[in-house]
Write a protein that binds this DNA or RNA. Structure first.
Lengths: 189, 189
DNA sequence: GTCTATACACGGATAGAC
DNA sequence: GTCTATCCGTGTATAGAC
């Protein structure tokens, strides 16, 4: 692991705990047992660290969505795949997801624009999947946006809940979340 | 409206747009067309503004939950009431909800503790409602925590989506969200 | 009740010695 | 590649004139 990677790893922990804006370069350096000035031999700015974390996440989701789009399957299976890749990243990299959720607004210039483009494209792809499911009769014809929003809200904030009770089996979690998102929480009357 | 209330109103807009930590007292003063020093005739610190915003929200939810608990109704109706009061506050005070979600961690000392106490109590009350519904057979015996988390995630982040398309009818929104949370997004086979 | 002036800590970042 | 020293802007907050 390079020094640069170590810095980003430490930053993930601190940014996640206290928020990007509240963590100073001196804090970050102290956590790694050296001085703030030394960080600049490995990274060129604080925002560059945030950008690397955010872009990794954005590219992961873009890549996974490409996969979901490229295969000819029904809507239910597509949604299961979407749920699955969200949960995979939540389990392997919860800090990054948290940071992206809370602090992507602090990306600057080109990073901000590029990130937002990928994020919007992802949402549009998911919207398309849902719309197709509504057309085919697989999904309720309720407001598409409500379905999109409630699904993404749950998946994007799963990290909050997962941290509190980690050790939960990944596959079991996928099954439970899929069931609840697709079929709701009520027992069938 | 007192000066103090005007300050808090302006702060809600700015904190919501850029995050509590990124808004300086100078920024806030500029938005109100006076100088930072003058703010301190009406409030005693920046954190006091955050605390007032957060406590208002916490007390609102505590009050509403008391109401839900005090009436003897079935689980479905209780959950509908919970959804309803979340949506009401989202419609009337979306900035406050956003700020509480993102920045409650920046509350200090006693404010932090008091807020967290109320928040945890609220979650416990909702957990009790869900557990009771599982026992009575009204809710699926899937993991209670998954039900709790997916419901709260959706309700707490509704403000993000509501802002983009405000003007949506409140009652229609309640109906759609209730339907999707309780019965899921799939059509019945 | 608002202003100017200012205190003083802390922010990101750089220069240059080692 | 890490250090010390430092630059300089910005942060919250206060003092005291008006």
């Amino acid at each position: 692991m390079t020094r640069r990677q170590e810095i980003i790893k430490s930053a993930k922990t601190l940014f996640r705990e206290r928020g990007y804006k509240s963590v100073s370069m001196r804090d970050l350096a102290k956590a790694m047992d050296f001085k703030a000035a030394s960080l600049y031999n490995h990274i060129s700015s604080k925002e560059e660290i945030l950008a690397e974390i955010a872009m990794d996440v954005a590219h992961y989701f873009t890549r996974e969505m490409e996969l979901v789009r490229s295969i000819d399957i029904n809507t239910r299976t597509r949604l299961e795949a979407v749920i699955s890749h969200h949960i995979d990243l939540t389990v392997t990299n919860p800090e990054a997801i948290a940071i992206v959720n809370n602090d992507w607004m602090h990306l600057e210039g080109n990073n901000f624009e590029e990130f937002l483009k990928l994020r919007n494209a992802y949402e549009q792809d998911l919207r398309d999947i849902i719309n197709k499911g509504v057309e085919s009769g697989e999904l309720k014809s309720k407001n598409t946006e409500v379905i999109l929003f409630s699904t993404l809200s749950t998946l994007r904030t799963l990290h909050l809940w997962y941290r509190k009770r980690s050790g939960v089996n990944g596959q079991q979690l996928k099954n439970d979340i899929t069931e609840i998102l697709l079929n709701g929480i009520l027992t069938k009357a």
